[in-house]
Nucleic acid binder design. Structure first.
Lengths: 329, 329
DNA sequence: GTGAAAGCGCTAACAA
DNA sequence: TTGTTAGCGCTTTCAC
């Protein structure tokens, strides 16, 4: 593999000129630029980016920490991130933290060791240290810690959950079960609060028996519904994500509970498959790619030394499909 | 951020010794090793990996090219890759080629420019040049080109498809529709051949009207079924992946065709959601994480200068669930 | 077992 | 506009 030296020799100029011709073509005369371009083509030269990175002390790489790469919700966000990163000349290093803070920490160390310039975290399962702030250029998307000195891009979880519950209330339900996520997670706390806001507004008192925890997986939605069904008589169900909604739907079907006739279900996220469930899933849409793009743009701004918005809230939307109907009398 | 020089000064040794103490502790006396470790801890030194990479001319990074990161099928494979890569001290750079060879080429250039050591491609949409072989350490997973000088990890597509069709035949079907993928894709050619093998074995002649092309998306499965339904009377349907199977299932349901009573459906892949469709989807299981792990192990072997198997075939499995039944008389 | 020194390939002052 | 020069931070001979 030829180096910049070879090209310089071939073109009969100095390495500095070759470098300039490639990085700042306008700082070089037309003639020499052509010579250099020719030499580059002839030698098949491709600059060693590692060397460049070392010299300029930047890596043009960002790390995306996801808690679970097999979770479709994150995939779409990553796609959005990837798009703007690429447009800005950045590569995306994928970090699956598998829900452990040790892994997350390992990925954060990549910026300490200059292998990455910044981080976008799609999980709040991060080392405690960063609670007091961090010099690492970083933005969080979807998840967050309250009172955390890191810019975030997320939705109004509380308002969105309330929106879902309001809808169920509107069409006549009053006994609404709820399959939550892990309640250590602030966004779950928010969504639960939103659920309660909805009930409170119409003076229905909240019943702890209406809740069961899941962990956002299909399986957990299934088993949470099996438990919930034992302890709480309901005509509607709100799930904190689509995957659990689908799990619950399967459980209901197995129990001979018809959706939506006997049980209305609302999900959260609007994953690709939500349109293809049977019945089609009514859900709160999160603009996943937009979230990714916004997060990436925010990080780009920080990386360019700019000041980023502390928090960006992106809008959600209730998507009414076929999994809900008014309760039987 | 302190450099190795600072550590050396602090420990009262040379930079060479610090380097040795970290890379080959056994090449250094107990005493100096301790001194160095202390100095490292005290200064909070973290080696600049870029500089190391430059010096050793390796990046300890592999690139995974996926045609579509939002496709769940690839996500699980990536997870498998990530696991073994990490265990071997490699990072994973994610490359979403969005089904374009230009993007794929851009990612392949990362190894030319020393930013990555090797590539795992989950797509065959690659630049033609590599048909004549390439010096780039590379392995393909899932997809392949026939007669291609690159090690692959994949399944027996033809046999697996035949397996699916055999099953439908066994339970009494003889009119079996087929939603294929893009037929430029060799794995689709194989699967179609497998379908035909199955029919041929029981002397049913293949009918071109039984086929409709999809592109592996939910949406394409939906519309392919809508077309197929017009042109071919069938009691069973074989889809080249689960996403299209789900799309077709939705289309059938909309048309008042009951699954499985009026139409049996078999998918391919066994995505996470296949267990949660209504009815649950009978499908050919591909061991996605295993494929990823095997591909990564193969690449590791190549990177270590070893010779890799040209082709590894991993086994599939027919998963019988609820989306199929014998045809009505 | 340890240190001195060379240099990986590139970029960016600074001179000319 | 171009060349000279000095590193970026590390590893690795080669001496000692």
């Amino acid at each position: 593999m030829p180096t910049i030296k070879d090209v310089a020799k071939l073109a009969g100029v100095s390495t500095a000129t070759v470098s300039r011709a490639m990085m700042n073509p306008e700082k070089v005369s037309e003639k020499t630029r052509l010579k250099v371009e020719l030499a580059v083509a002839e030698s098949g030269f491709s600059p060693n980016v590692i060397a460049r990175n070392l010299r300029r002390s930047e890596s043009k790489t960002i790390v995306v920490i996801v808690p679970d790469i097999a979770n479709m919700f994150f995939a779409s966000i990553v796609r959005g991130i990837q798009q703007v990163a690429l447009n800005n000349g950045y590569k995306v290093l994928l970090g699956d933290s598998i829900h452990t803070v040790e892994q997350a920490k390992a990925y954060m160390d990549l910026v300490r060791s200059k292998q990455a310039d910044g981080i976008i975290s799609l999980t709040a399962e991060l080392p405690m240290e960063i609670r007091q702030g961090t010099e690492i250029p970083m933005v969080m998307a979807c998840e967050y810690f309250p009172g955390f000195p890191i810019p975030t891009v997320r939705i109004d979880n509380r308002g969105s959950a309330k929106r879902a519950v309001d809808y169920l209330l509107d069409i006549g339900h009053s006994r609404i079960g709820c399959i939550t996520g892990p309640m250590e997670n602030p966004i779950c706390v928010d969504r639960k609060a939103g659920y309660q806001d909805g009930l409170q507004q119409v003076n229905i008192e909240s019943d702890e028996a209406a809740f069961e925890d899941g962990d956002f997986s299909f399986q957990s939605g299934y088993s949470a519904f099996m438990r919930l069904h034992q302890q709480y008589a309901m005509t509607a169900l709100f799930c904190f994500n689509d995957m659990m909604a689908l799990g619950a739907m399967k459980a209901a079907t197995q129990l001979g509970i018809k959706v939506p006739q006997d049980l209305s279900i609302v999900g959260f996220d609007d994953l690709l498959f939500a349109e293809y469930t049977n019945p089609e899933l009514t859900t709160i849409r999160q603009p996943q790619e937009d979230i990714g793009k916004t997060a990436a743009n925010t990080l780009m701004k920080i990386l360019q030394g700019g000041k980023a918005n502390q928090d960006t809230i992106v809008p959600t939307q209730l998507l009414v499909r076929a999994s809900c109907t008014s309760p039987k009398k």
